[in-house]
């Protein structure tokens, strides 16, 4: 029992990753928009699990808050506002679906061929090691948040400020775009 738990703990990332892929595939393939949103929610939660298993606790929690708490609700509201039932009969997929799928498959094969040595070569069994100085910083959630904030406010201060301006512009822009014609 303990051994099994240990194995599960060691492969936590792969489990969450495969679940995220399943959620993403369900999102793309499902006919109903609400089902798509639910698949998206599942994929985002599993990606948050991936973040947690990579010792990025703060980002995992931020992922859950931002995506599951904010963006999915926003999507659901828009699905509610936009009446989708009248598009049912027109088909789910684009006309060029076959060529698009072929292009994606060819691209994936080309990617795998180009990075075959990198992904499955001799270097691949090397595990993702944590540097000791970082391991200390990432050990506890609070310390992870401290480490991230140190990076954010020292190396990435200017992008952080620019992002706040972008958020303000997006806020104003969304209101302007979505408001009705009569003011």
């Amino acid at each position: 029992m303990e051994h099994q738990l240990e194995t599960i703990g060691r492969n936590m990332f792969a489990i969450f990753g495969v679940m995220a892929l399943c959620g993403a595939a369900f999102m793309v393939a499902s006919k109903s928009a609400v089902h798509s949103v639910l698949g998206f929610l599942f994929a985002m939660l599993c990606v948050a699990g991936c973040f947690l298993s990579l010792d990025a606790e703060f980002l995992g929690m931020a992922q859950i808050l931002v995506y599951a708490g904010g963006i999915v609700v926003l999507f659901l509201f828009v699905v509610m506002l936009v009446e989708l039932s009248k598009f049912k009969e027109k088909g789910v997929f684009q006309l060029q679906t076959r060529s698009a799928v072929i292009a994606v498959i060819v691209g994936g094969v080309a990617f795998l061929a180009a990075f075959r040595n990198l992904l499955f070569g001799t270097a691949s069994p090397e595990a993702l090691v944590l540097r000791p100085e970082l391991a200390q910083g990432l050990a506890v959630a609070q310390q992870n948040a401290q480490a991230v904030s140190r990076g954010l406010f020292s190396d990435f201060l200017l992008p952080f400020e620019i992002l706040s301006v972008i958020l303000l512009v997006a806020l104003v822009g969304a209101v302007v775009l979505a408001k009705t014609e009569r003011v």
Binding site: A56, F58, L59, A62, Q63, V66, G70, I71, L134, G137, N144, A147, V148, R150, G151, L152, D155, F156, P159, F160, L163, I166, L167, V169, A170
Partner: peptide
């Protein structure tokens, strides 16, 4: 931790 900080920025960008 630079990568984590930048991932946080990407998250905010995605929200916008």
């Amino acid at each position: 931790v630079s990568g984590q900080a930048f991932a946080l920025l990407v998250m905010g960008f995605a929200a916008a």
